[in-house]
Amino acid sequence: MKAFTQHSGLVGPMDRANVDTDMIIPKQFLKSIKRSGFGPNLFDELRYMDEGQPGQDCSQRPVNPEFPLNLARYSGASILLARKNFGCGSSREHAPWALEDYGFRAVIAPSYADIFYNNCFKNGLLPVVLSEQQLDLLFAEMYADEGYQLTIDLAGQKVVRPCGDSFEFDIDRFRKDCLVKGLDEIGLTLQSADKIRDYEKTRAADQPWVFGAIK
């Protein structure tokens, strides 16, 4: 997994609450058996005027001129400002895959849906939580200032504004460690293989019906 330590980049908006993962990447693109290539279809229904199909050349499609991320000033944005409960609904990991493939390295929102939040960390995408008031301020600064950039320092757990002031954020230690070091979580878990086997032995003695059922 791609490591994340510090990132500076252009900021773009997704200024509405309860953005669901169907909105982030609509279902027709979930038919793919690959992990990559979802970027051109990020926010597909909002971003284009037509109905997108998998495998289509998106550069030829009519874009929605009113969708903020289509504006030239947000072209190349790598930090997404969002509102509360971002990523709700379906568990599709295609949502962080699409955000990452589009070029986002981080999202900043007041809250996230649990599964989406978890999925981000598996893909080197950092979901930062700040308060609604702090988000209001960042949105206002971004709208006022074309080319608005932020720096996210994961090691120091802070978002640094252009004026030099910063907002601190909380993050679980184990999630932070995995992201900073870009660790292979499965490899890490398999280091505890003996413990897993011990657990299975004890459990099979107590609750034998749990094992061997599916055949």
Binding site: R35, P96, N119, I186, T189, I196
Partner: peptide
């Protein structure tokens, strides 16, 4: 799949996971 909580009707600890976790569970049962 996020609707895995359905199985909780039988007093299970049931929940949806992402694809990276599908791989994690396949590989380690944890």
């Amino acid at each position: 799949d996020s609707h895995t909580a359905t199985h909780g009707a039988l007093a299970c600890l049931a929940h949806g996971i992402g694809t990276s976790e599908v791989e994690h569970v396949l590989a380690s049962q944890c």
